[in-house]
């Protein structure tokens, strides 16, 4: 489904990704973990060319994301992206955020788009907030609207860039619940997150990144089990993020 082949990325003199390779199969959930600046977010941003790369290839369903001929906007419609800062459009209501893509890209009329949007909002438990402006929603609600906005485009893959990091602790659960539900439905997902509980529960594989490279990958139990001696575990122990591991 998604393949990274020796991906290199520089920000000026700083190498953000150093020869990253890996594959995400259909229906798989990968969780990327690592210290900040390790290249996790950059890696998933290369999948929809929010970041261009200087070396290697990123393939989505066999299509080279970086090639000149590719219709990047069409590709982006198939790959949902959820941001840490939600990035809802503040001048549009919750439902307006969702229907924008449907009317502009799917050719739906307003009524069809609204119906579809309401269905997506219902999936994340926010049908009654459809006409609220984002400014009047809590962080957790905003992020769930953002997830619904992406899902409305019928993506084949969902990318999550630290979706709960900007949230107050009491709101993390509702967003993770929506993500778990999505994973259970068979969605292909790559999640950058520090929520180790989530990783243990739904990840098919955890990639531990540091310095722009994937240092370690394995099943959650192998990397975080009590008998494991992994670099991931050392990292978790050394950071406060370990506290949310339970």
């Amino acid at each position: 489904m998604i393949r990274f082949e020796n991906v290199d990325k520089w920000f000026g003199p700083m190498q953000a990704l150093a020869g990253v390779s890996g594959e995400v199969g259909r229906g798989e959930v990968k969780v990327l973990v690592g210290p900040s600046g390790s290249g996790k977010s950059t890696l998933i941003r290369t999948v929809t060319r929010l970041e261009t790369i200087q070396g290697g290839r990123v393939l989505v369903d066999g299509t080279d994301v970086g090639s000149r001929g590719v219709d990047i906007n069409r590709l982006r419609q198939r790959v949902g992206f959820v941001f840490q800062a939600y990035n809802l459009f503040p001048h549009l209501s919750a439902i307006g955020n969702i229907t924008l893509g449907l009317t502009k890209l799917r050719g739906m009329n307003k009524a069809e788009a609204r119906e579809r949007g309401l269905a997506e909002l219902a999936r994340v438990g926010l049908a009654e907030k459809a006409d609220e402006m984002p400014g009047r929603l809590s962080g957790g609600q905003r992020q769930r609207v953002a997830i619904a906005r992406s899902l409305a485009m019928d993506p084949q893959v969902m990318l999550f860039d630290e979706p709960t990091s900007a949230l107050d602790p009491e709101m993390v659960g509702e967003v993770l619940a929506a993500m778990k539900q999505l994973a259970a439905s068979g969605m292909t997902m790559i999640c950058v997150t520090h929520e180790m509980g989530f990783a243990r529960e739904v990840a098919d594989e955890i990639w531990f990144m540091e310095g722009g490279a994937v240092l370690e990958r394995g099943k959650p139990a192998e990397l975080t089990g009590t008998s494991a001696h992994s670099r991931l575990q050392a990292f978790l122990a050394s950071t406060r993020h370990g506290g949310s591991a339970a």
Partner: peptide
Amino acid sequence: GQVEAAKSLGLRYWPTTFKVVLPQ
């Protein structure tokens, strides 16, 4: 992030400009 979110939906330049960027 506003433009990135619009791009991520697959919106092209003009809808992004007239529906997301300019109104704000």
